[in-house]
Design a protein around this nucleic acid. Structure first.
Lengths: 337, 337
DNA sequence: ATGACGCTTGCACACAAGTGCATTTGCATC
DNA sequence: GATGCAAATGCACTTGTGTGCAAGCGTCAT
């Protein structure tokens, strides 16, 4: 039995033969502004429809831009990542881009492999949502005329665009929220996966508190998820005097923390405990939680992203910072005043 | 200022010139099993590395298979969809495929546009996770030698593979779970987005209950989300005798339902109310919920998917049904016996 | 010395598109 | 009817790759 590699995709030539015109005519029929008579156009469209012809964008991409944008992402199941991917794919599609997604690990080698694949497919741009690519590989991408855009990656890297949320502001505002609520014993819950963003929220929160003369207990029990938040609460309230005001650097941590505080230690919010999260995932608005938190302005970030892609050349790459939006719910006492 | 279309991607020709060899030599260096001397290979690799050359898979895709698999999906933010996308992308990548994602609506026109794009990029296969493509368009894809695989789309469509979970079994088992728990007044909560899968779970649950001589109140308050589940509970318990055993066709509905039952009507589970969901999303395992539900065997489905893609030609397309896995938690009373 | 054989290598073509340029066609005007 | 002009068409080249075929080169046996 012979191998017989199948190649059944109908091409412009087949359509041309069927319509009794030249291949150029077919090409022009599907090119805006090209010169084709109404008659040939009709014949071509008819033949194309009968054969089920579709223009090969891969071949088109040989001469012009590929219109492909790669999204490099890890931990896609996390609610906040899922929403970011959702928003970005929608915005990019609306802008006529095609999205290639690379689900990777956060380690350097995985990200490197992703970047290389991005080059293999001649993507116009690579958008990195997770992990941090090596400076050398970014340089290669840029040298190949490919834009590199990092989202919420606060690591200092030159040459690529950088969209991120103002983590410092979130840390500061979180503190003021808790102080206005009259909290006396502060804690900060973070994860052991110390990304630059999380570290920044932690750093500023602790710093501002210190300036105000308040100490902060920092707790990190595991990765950035519900279980770690839960475990953090068990450890913190297992001691003699647990905190009465907590900033969890992520909503998932906050929800786990809240559940442990209530179910394991019988605390009620916001009376016994005030809690602030970050991300504004859907679950935080559920009746069991009603978490006060900060929303990331993904829509605006997506708009800015497509705007960047529209620019012909990397017009002075740099950082663009977006303000998080405070979302008041019920996990923090209203201000005493 | 001239247009000056940039084309900085380095090609095999450039590498060849730099290395002082023919372009064929470059091609062969990056082709497994091709005949190249160790000396030329070294020169080529060196030049490629210096220039940052990466083989153009788009051009390669002109001759052979593109290795692209398209995922057509809607409602990506839903936890269950996010997890499905996560599992499939990982499995497909491990099998050497590249994933193109199309985030679409569920209406026919959106799905049609997605299918057409799939053809434009010569994807080896299209995997549909949401919405239902028209039979005509599927036919076009198949005629172009492109595989079409539907996941959890129970609509009867010929010519394409179909992986889905056994919804009938879930409906049946849900009923037995509730009856063994001693529930007397049954209700079924579903959404107004009546997809074939949801309808099947509903149909069988109601039918089996009827055979056992029990009536079922069916409630659908909106789309498949938390808010609809919440609203359904408000309506059901607002009446004189609310149900004491409920099957929510989706975990998200179940969690909303549970929250309303507890916070609005002061019910406790599983004493006053037994609740069964479907999907096994992470949130259902949170301390506030501990929902008894059914898990979808996504890993097995992903494995089967890559197996299908490995087959040279659509070897008699057909349906493959996977058994859902019951997950016992605390929202249903243990059997009385 | 010469032919046989094997490993490299380059030429040229294929893949599927877009497009500049020259040619042909169609139509109106003189 | 001849001329002029614009629109339509086809040829041939371009994009970047893989590969069949034949030629080149070196080694070994006869």
């Amino acid at each position: 039995m012979s191998e017989q590699e199948r190649r059944p995709f109908v091409s412009a030539r087949t359509v041309a033969e069927r319509a009794g015109v030249s291949r150029s005519a077919v090409s022009r029929t599907f090119t805006d502004g090209a010169s084709v008579s109404e008659e040939t156009r009709r014949k071509v469209l008819e033949a194309a429809s009968e054969l089920g012809y579709h223009v090969n964008h891969l071949a088109r991409g040989l001469r012009e831009r590929s219109n492909i944008v790669c999204l490099v992402v890890a931990d896609m199941t996390t609610p906040i990542r899922a929403r970011l991917v959702d928003v970005l794919t929608r915005k990019l599609q609306a802008a006529g881009k095609v999205i290639m997604i690379i689900n990777t690990g956060t380690d350097e080698e995985s990200v490197a492999a992703a970047l290389r694949q991005t080059l293999n497919y001649r993507a116009d741009a690579t958008v990195v949502l997770s992990g941090t690519p090596s400076a050398k590989l970014i340089e290669t991408s840029l040298a190949n005329g490919q834009q590199v855009i990092l989202i919420n990656r606060d690591d200092p890297l030159t040459g690529c665009h950088n969209l991120s949320v103002d983590n410092a502001m979130a840390g500061r505002e979180a503190f003021f929220l808790l102080r206005r609520a009259g909290c006396k014993r502060l804690a900060l819950v973070t994860s052991t996966a110390s990304t630059a963003s999380l570290l920044e929220r932690e750093r500023v929160f602790v710093e501002v508190a210190k300036d105000a003369g308040m100490a902060v207990t920092v707790m990190a029990a595991g990765p950035t998820n519900y279980a770690s938040g839960y475990e953090s609460a068990r450890r913190l309230f297992g001691r003699s005097d647990g905190p009465d005001g907590v900033f969890c650097v992520t909503d998932l941590l906050a929800l786990g923390f809240m559940d442990a505080a209530r179910h394991e230690f019988g605390l009620t919010l916001p009376n016994d405990l005030c809690l602030v999260g970050f991300d504004d995932i859907d679950e935080g608005d559920w009746q069991s939680y009603k978490l006060t938190t900060f929303a990331q302005p993904f829509a605006a970030m997506g708009d800015h992203l497509v705007e960047l892609l529209g620019q012909t050349v990397a017009a002075e790459a740099g950082r663009r910072i977006f303000e998080p939006i405070p979302i008041w719910r019920k996990s923090v006492r209203p201000s005493a005043e």
